[in-house]
Structure formats: C-alpha cells, structure tokens
Design a binder for these strands. Sequence first.
DNA 1: ACTCCTTACTAACGCGTGTTACTAAAACGT
DNA 2: ACGTTTTAGTAACACGCGTTAGTAAGGAGT
Lengths: 330, 330
Amino acid sequence: MAGVSRTTVSLVLNNVRSIQISPETRQKVLDAANELGYVPDATAQALARRRTKLIGLVLTRTQHHIATDAFLPRIISGLLTSAKKQNVRILVDWMETEHPDSAYFELARAKRIDGMILSTPRLDDRALKALEKVDVPTVLMGKIDGLNLPFIDVDNLKAAEKATAYMLELGHRAIACISSAPREYTATPERVGGYQNALTKAGIPINENLIRYADFDPKSGYDCMQSLLQSGESFTAVFVASDNVAIGAKAALREANLRVPDDISLVGFDDIPWAQYSDPPLTTIKLPAELLAQSACELLLDLIQDGNAGQSHQMVLDTELIIRKSCKPL
Amino acid sequence: MAGVSRTTVSLVLNNVRSIQISPETRQKVLDAANELGYVPDATAQALARRRTKLIGLVLTRTQHHIATDAFLPRIISGLLTSAKKQNVRILVDWMETEHPDSAYFELARAKRIDGMILSTPRLDDRALKALEKVDVPTVLMGKIDGLNLPFIDVDNLKAAEKATAYMLELGHRAIACISSAPREYTATPERVGGYQNALTKAGIPINENLIRYADFDPKSGYDCMQSLLQSGESFTAVFVASDNVAIGAKAALREANLRVPDDISLVGFDDIPWAQYSDPPLTTIKLPAELLAQSACELLLDLIQDGNAGQSHQMVLDTELIIRKSCKPL
DNA sequence: ACTCCTTACTAACGCGTGTTACTAAAACGT
DNA sequence: ACGTTTTAGTAACACGCGTTAGTAAGGAGT
C-alpha cells in the first residue's frame, strides 16, 4: 500500500460519510488503488456485509420445459437490465417439482443469495407455505391466492376474458380453449377462468369438452389441438393461452387441412417474438415480460433493503390485446 | 452444539478422510446438525476455500438480442443440468459490446466466480486477448482462430456446407444466404464460408449480391429477405444460418406471395423447437445445444480443478441435417 | 518403567473485508 | 494556561468457515 492503514482504505473506497478523511490521504488511497488495479474481493465483502449482492431466479420446471420456453429470454433480459442498474447479479437455479420442501431453501439457507424470484409457482407446492414464515425475501412471479407472499403478475383473468370477448365480438360462439400449462400452475386456472367468464357473460354455456390443458411446449399444443379435433366437438375459434403452445396447435390445424383464420380463428397469449411473424400474424395478448421481470427485481430489492416494511408488496400489471390477422368474423 | 469442537464438526461434515474420527462422535455431530437444520454458510466457505462454486455465463449481446434469442433457453437448460450435477451454480451476466477491456474482469477480478463461459464471442473483441494472459478459467462458446483459449463449438463450416450441398443435390443453383449475425461474430464467417465452399465445389461462382447479414432476431431476417427480393437477383433457394432469423425471413417471403417450398426452398440452422412445427416443417441443421452447454460446463470445471493442465481444451461437435419439408427438387 | 506409536480430538490461525471504539494531535474558547 | 471540542486516523474485533500443527490419552513393545 501507500502509507496508510487498511481501515482508512476501506473508508475511502466505500465513501463512508460519517467520518472525516483529509482530501490528500483520500487521493493517495485512490491513486494507489488505481495503480494496483485493486478490486475488493466480493466474497469477503459479502461475508462482512452479510449481503451477497446476488438474487436468485428459481425456475420451477423440468429441464425440458426450460429448454423449450420461448418466454424465458425476455424474463432474463428484463432481469439483467434491472439488476445491472442496481449493481446486483443474477443467479439462475432450477428445481424439479418432485423435490421435498427444503429445496427452496438450499440457496437461501446457505445465504448464497439475498433474495429470490420464483417463476411459475405451483399451487400444490407445500414449500411455499413454509416460505411465508422464513426470513428470505421472496417475490413470486405469479399470483397465489391463499398466501401472503409478495408477488407480481399480470391480470391473467382479465386478459383471457379480453381475448375471448374479442372472438365473441367477431361472432364466434363455439370457442375452444387450450391452456398454457397443467392445472397446478397458478396462471392456468386464471386464464381458463377468464375464458369461461367471457362465455358466461355472453350467455354461452361452458362446454368442458372444449377445454384442454397443455404443458408449456409446442408439442403439448399440437397434442391438445389434435385431441380437440378428434373429439367430435365443432368449434370455429380457439383461445390458446400461450404463444409457445400455439406454435404446435397451429401445426395440428394445418395437418388437418384447416386454415387460420379462414376455418379457425386463433388468439394467443404472451406475444413472443415469433407471434408477429407467424403465418398469419398471430393476434395475441401482449404480456409485458421485461417490465414484469424488472418490477419483480425492484420489488425484491426493496424487500431486501427495508425488510418487510408494512405494506403488502403485490402488483398486478395490465395487458394489451394485439390484433393481427389470425381471427376472422364468423 | 452437542459436545464437540468446531473443528470436529467441520471435519465430519466435509468428510475429511485424512483424519480419524470415531463413529460415535461422527454420528453425534450429524445428529446435531440435522436437528439444528444446520447449513454451512456458502459465503464463508467460499472465502475459506477460495472457491465460490459459481460459474458465470457471460452473454456478449445487447439486451434486445437476449430477449429475442430463441436459442438461449436450450443453453441455459443444458448448463443448469450439468451444473447441478457438479454441485455448482450459474451466474448469468451480460455485457454490452461497447464496454472497455476491463468489463470481462469485473466478475473474475472480484473473485465472484470460479470461471466463466463466454457465449457468442466477437472477433473484434480486444479484451479476449487479455484473457489469455489472465488467470481466469474461461471457455468460449464459439471458435476463435487467433487465440489459444479453450473453446467449444460446433463445426459451423461443415454444417453450412452440408446444408448448402443438400440444396445443390436437389438441383438448385441460385442459392442465397442469410447469415445469423453480423460479421464480427465468430460463427458468421464460418457459416457463410461453408455456404461458399459448397458452391465452389459445385463449380458455381459466388455472387456477393446473394449474401445478407442478419442480426440474430426475426426482424433482421425479415429485412434481409426483403432486401434480397428487392435486389433484382433471382434465386430458388436460401440458406438461413439461424432458425430464429428464418422466422422473419419466411414472413417476408409470404408477404411477397412466395411459397415455401414451391417457389423457394429453405434450410435453417439450430433446430429450435419452432422449426419442426413451422409451416412447412423446416429442414435445418440440428445443433446439439444442451450437449454444447454441458460440455462447456464440464470443460470449465476441469480447467478450474486441474489448472491449465497441458492439453489444449478445444472441442468441436458435429451437427446433423434434419430433413423436413421446406425444400423441393428444382 | 520408559519410550514410541496410534487414535481422537482441539487451539489457533487465516481467508479479505466492514465497522466500532478509541487515541493522538490540533484547534478552539475563556 | 487549561479544559473542551473537532479532526484524522488506527487497532482490534467480527463475519463463519477450512486447515495445520499440536496435544492428551491409551495401547504396544522391550
């Protein structure tokens, strides 16, 4: 070093205001640090400060569903920009759903991260209840009613209702629904519920045979659509609650020689990059993914800083129906 | 604790073999740890062991290109499985290309990570040369000729040649090429080079006017295809060096009332999930993304453990041409 | 009875930083 | 001239673990 104590260096580099350092020594320290190319050891800082400056993004899905998720890049992108702005880094982890309760805590208990964002939580996940009582700042990306955890989500119900209402306006009456994921995932009942609400408001009875539950990926969409086509039920429009699933659903329609929108109208959900370039361009619900991720990140950092300071940190974002060319008046 | 020293606990929990512990005390320690729900503090371990058990995935792209990258999920999925197997975690970071040389080192210098994987490196990146001399285990996902850094990549040249040769076999002679990314990215010259090789071997002169450089996302593919169509050049087939770019390219063809494969044959690259469900199913080069990521991870962990133990850690994986229905004999 | 080895454990230090309590010197006030 | 405050800096401890060197107890050998 250059002529000063370790403590002084720490005080200068961290710009501690509650203490006085003469401008000259301050400059001497800065010069020395610069010349030596000194970078504080992040691990040691974390140990001393009891903050790792790391937040975890925990994906509650199988490996295969992560690999085929066309939505994930937007979440990561949003998270990265928001994190960089706040000088925090992102740790990605993944959890097979079969794991026991303790799985969520591996990261947190070891204090590897300061807090975490849980993507696509499941309703049947018992560990979530435990999270309420444990002191790990957590933000859910997905609303769960029973729990009192902070969450951020879009208004899935309203969005699905909007999408379905649009097809109703065009005169469709026999409208099928393919959900984005199995029932256990929180968005599923909301989106299917919104679809059902719209039908009910239009005085149309709900036909359970027109509802299918996909499993995130295009293949499941393909299977669901085939199942619908083979069910014998007739329909002129389909609400597919995930663009990624719609990719497969459209393939099934094509194989059955049905054309979009001439034979079947289609509305998707998410507005992944593919949607506007598909044939025909897909009418879909635009989900503000980057904003969602950024808000989740900021919410989490608030929680980490202020503790759980009173107010319930829960946000619901709005969505927009993007009308393209996959629907046609009946 | 339950009747024993801190040292003994450490020895038991880490299963240190070079030292003797009686089975009874061992069990006592394990029982106590279990009851207390003791989890070692990861930060403190990292400080003492000088290993963070974290590896960085550094993306050299803009925020927008990350958000629209249909290929990223497969990389992350592969990395996650491989990392979990080795009890290591993944830190995702991102770097705008304009940053100065030091940018790569922020993570490494602060010893936040044990090593890093660099995705889609750029040829013009001067910082890479600095990496050679710095003691940070690094694996490049993408081959760079001048450097002596460990890398893992697919044989882009051979793959592109294979794709182009396939169209030549079908009788096409006027074959255009849309690259996946700007020239600065390492895969670009290789893939375009493979395309040119195939033409040359078939005795066809290379027409520079039939080559376009896209920029990762569907929109750039759309623009490139439009540019080709408006150039006045005539062609019957196109090699698009990225499925993600092909999404947009197909949209441009459709708008020009050209049909695939009747009017234009198309071969893609990557085999993203969308490819097999597109209309028509896209013939493409299947890139083993998960394997690529896993190999990169294992390579990196080897480097971290053994230091740079002699042998040049460089791997080139093979690809496969998946023939679907987007090409037609001329 | 003494040395020598083995077994089973622990004291003490180090990892690289943040932070608190304290001190020495200088400046100030009467 | 003396007490009091301010200024500028540092020593020492803490963070929670890994690890090395060392020790006490017990057994074996002569």
